[in-house]
């Protein structure tokens, strides 16, 4: 493209063409979703197996591996993705802010849980409500923004499981590991793993 003067009509055509080009960029990548999805499912499976085989509740500390590994990997992967794309759209910015809010809410919830635990309560059921209510809502919001149905559907399934879990906790129904942990893995499979693969496949087809 040269630096030359144009007619008014050419100017308008150029603006339209450039707007079109910025809209043609691919849907994004699902790698961060896949990382969180597989990480959560693997850690949950590990906790489940260890609790069944050893009956030692200390294995529950493994849950924190999800937050630590995911919390470190996400900004690294996100920066790498931004560099690869060369552009950050407004929807990228909004979804990034939504997920940052989810991350901060999770940290605050964890601190509250520690506080209540130190006072002798057992608040840890809350730690299942956060990823099964706040995360699906963020995912549905992201799906609406980027017009990706798999995110909306996956988020809706996760939210249903989350609301069910919340009802169980409020009703003092016990979340037994033999049915709840598989349900938790199923929810994360639907929320993160399936949409992640769908988004990656779409991105691959668009390139």
């Amino acid at each position: 493209m040269e630096e030359k003067k144009m007619t008014e009509k050419e100017s308008l055509e150029l603006i339209t063409a450039m707007i079109q080009r910025t809209r043609e960029r691919y849907v994004g990548d699902g790698n961060i979703l896949l990382m969180w999805g597989y990480l959560t499912v693997i850690v949950t499976a590990l906790v489940w197996i260890m609790l069944i085989t050893t009956h030692n509740p200390a294995w529950n500390w493994l849950w924190f591996a999800i937050g630590i590994v995911g919390g470190i990997a996400t900004p690294i992967m996100s920066k790498k993705s931004d560099l690869k794309n060369g552009v950050k759209s407004y929807s990228d910015k909004i979804t990034s802010q939504i997920w940052t809010t989810v991350g901060l809410a999770s940290v605050v919830a964890t601190l509250f849980c520690f506080g209540f635990a130190l006072k002798g309560f057992n608040p840890w059921g809350m730690m299942f409500v956060i990823p099964l209510i706040i995360v699906p809502m963020a995912e549905i919001a992201q799906g609406i923004i980027v017009k990706e149905k798999s995110l909306i559907a996956g988020g809706a399934i996760g939210l249903c499981v989350g609301l069910f879990t919340f009802c169980c906790i409020v009703s003092n129904a016990r979340l037994l590991i033999n049915w709840f942990l598989p349900l938790f893995m199923f929810a994360f499979g639907c929320m993160m793993i399936i949409p992640g693969h769908i988004i990656n496949r779409k991105a691959k087809m668009q390139r």
């Binding site: 030359k4 003067k5 150029l14 707007i19």
Partner: peptide
């Protein structure tokens, strides 16, 4: 009102 500058601004 210059082709390249307008293209950049449009993006």
């Amino acid at each position: 009102h210059s082709q390249l500058r307008l293209a950049v601004m449009s993006i």
